[in-house]
Design a protein around this nucleic acid. Structure first.
Length: 448
RNA sequence: GUGGAAGUAGUUCAAUGGUAGAGCCCCAGGUUGUGGUCCUGGUUGUUGAGGGUUCGAGUCCCUUCUUCCACCCCA
């Protein structure tokens, strides 16, 4: 604003186009308030399980993020030389930095260690529906212990998280990577296991027939392709345990992983939440570091959006950075995708994002000091209070409140000032109540 | 990275190759010790950007950017 004079003095001012980068976006208050609400709800839930928050730097050494292999040119990560000539990269997930974090701080951490991490990550891939170059990820993991209890607790926390977001209609599809690998070994195709896993992972997307032909190409055998399809397509009628037994048989009566899954399931049953968990052997997760249980989460009311929370057990994640073996199990919520799902489903959890509980209307400019003191008094009573800051007509002030979804207005003039009473107006019903004390005002607002 | 569609006011959309418009929003004013109606007036555009064809381009052609959709990929 101040620069306008300078600009006119020097003729035309050059305007810089206020654009944002491809795949990046601003978040306006209406959006940001909702996002923060979700995050707070999740944080409260995680804390209630004894999880603690951590953070890691946005930038890491490129070699740390890419790992030793680092051969793949496709890695779509933001990387550059910093001013000191260091090769740096922006984190593309929260898991790899966490592994580095564990290796570095393993002696300062008490295991089992339960942490959550909600923050932004960056990937340079092409943006499309629900996929951006900058997005929020929400990770929660238990490391330092390889037990069914830990596996169960992550699942339990996933369920309670969706429940408290008003998304009770979710189904968790779980499988076991170790069991699947045992099956592939039994079948004699373990050499191609990574490719097979990736192909199987596409089942939901490209369908049975396409997967079958791809598997045939991959294994060079129609029989083997059909065997794999038989593994990943369980009978509809079978329940969790019946499916598990069948998978175990197909894997040559595999015992260890089968037993683990049985134990996890019994924990889910004991908690009374087993019905929301489906054994779905087609879930593999494309990532190759998973070794145990893996899972993806689908909204029953909006399956088209895909998985909104996925993860699994990895028993050698930190091995890139330390000789110590640090087992872990964790899960990750795609917050942006979840938020768009909540909006599409019209979830009641998302309020309209009010900036304050009450607006103190400035009826008379001369009373402005008093209005400010009333605001302070209400804040001390725990009320979010907005005192109108400009010199505008009352109608404008009401419009301001409406635009910001502020539910109440305090409309007091000299009469109230002299009498020491307050008039509160409910802006939604337009009901006005006069002669209130400040405590009564706070009480009415709180009751809302 | 590959392919398809689309970009016009803050927003939603118009405009046979012939002067860029409307609704909503926004702003100012009128009326009112308390805003939803009403009245008056007003702002808003390098038609995403750059080039070309044409007497003339929002419209046709090329390039580029962005968005959306699909593929690839998803550590």
């Amino acid at each position: 604003m101040q620069s306008q004079d300078n600009a006119s003095a020097s003729g035309k001012k050059t305007i810089i186009e206020p654009k944002v980068l491809k795949g990046f976006r601003d978040s306006l208050p209406a959006q940001e308030i909702k996002k923060k609400e979700i995050i707070h709800a999740l944080e409260r839930n995680f804390s209630s399980y004894g999880f603690v928050p951590i953070d890691t730097p946005v930038l890491e050494y490129t070699e740390v993020l890419l790992g030793k292999g680092g051969g793949e040119t496709d890695k779509q990560i933001f990387r550059f030389l910093d001013n000191g000539g260091r090769e740096v990269a922006m984190r593309f997930d929260l898991t790899v930095p966490f592994a580095r974090f564990l290796a570095l701080h393993k002696n300062e951490i008490v295991f089992p260690f339960k942490r959550f991490h909600i923050n932004k990550v960056w990937r340079g891939e092409n943006p499309q529906k629900g996929r951006f170059r900058e997005f929020m990820q929400c990770d929660f993991d238990i490391v330092g212990v390889d037990s069914p209890s830990a596996d169960y607790e992550i699942l339990s926390m996933m369920r309670s998280s969706f429940d408290l977001l008003g998304l009770g209609n979710v189904t968790f599809h779980v499988a076991h990577r170790g069991l699947f690998n045992a099956f592939l070994e039994h079948l004699g195709v373990s050499d191609d296991s990574v490719e097979v896993l990736r192909t199987v992972d596409k089942l939901r997307k490209i369908g049975s027939e396409a997967v079958r032909s791809q598997l045939t190409d991959l294994t060079g055998s129609v029989e083997k392709a059909d065997d794999i399809l038989a593994y990943i397509n369980p009978k509809e009628s079978d329940g969790f345990l019946a499916r598990l037994e069948r998978l175990s048989e197909l894997a040559g009566n595999e015992q260890e992983h089968t037993h683990r899954m049985r134990t996890i399931y019994s924990l889910l049953e004991a908690a009374g939440i087993a019905s929301q968990f489906v054994l779905d052997p087609s879930i593999t997760r494309g990532l190759d570091y998973y070794t145990g249980i893996v899972y993806e989460t689908f909204l029953d009311d909006l399956p088209s959006i895909g998985s909104v929370c996925s993860g699994g057990r990895y028993n050698d994640l930190a091995s890139l950075y330390t000789k110590d073996r640090i087992p872990g199990v964790g899960s990750s919520i795609g917050l942006d995708r979840l938020l768009s799902a909540l909006e599409e489903l019209g979830s009641g959890i998302l309020t309209e994002g009010s900036s304050a509980d009450v607006l103190v209307v400035v009826m008379e400019e001369s009373l402005r000091p008093w209005y400010h003191s009333v605001g302070d008094a209400l804040r001390k009573l725990g009320i979010r209070c907005d005192v109108y800051l400009a010199d505008k007509k009352i109608s404008q002030q009401f419009k301001y409140a409406e635009s910001n979804h502020i539910p109440f207005a305090l409309t007091c003039g000299s009469d109230e000032h002299d009498a020491g009473t307050f008039t509160l107006k409910d802006l939604r019903t337009r009901e006005t109540c006069s002669g209130l004390s400040l405590q009564q005002v706070a009480q009415r607002i709180r009751k809302d």
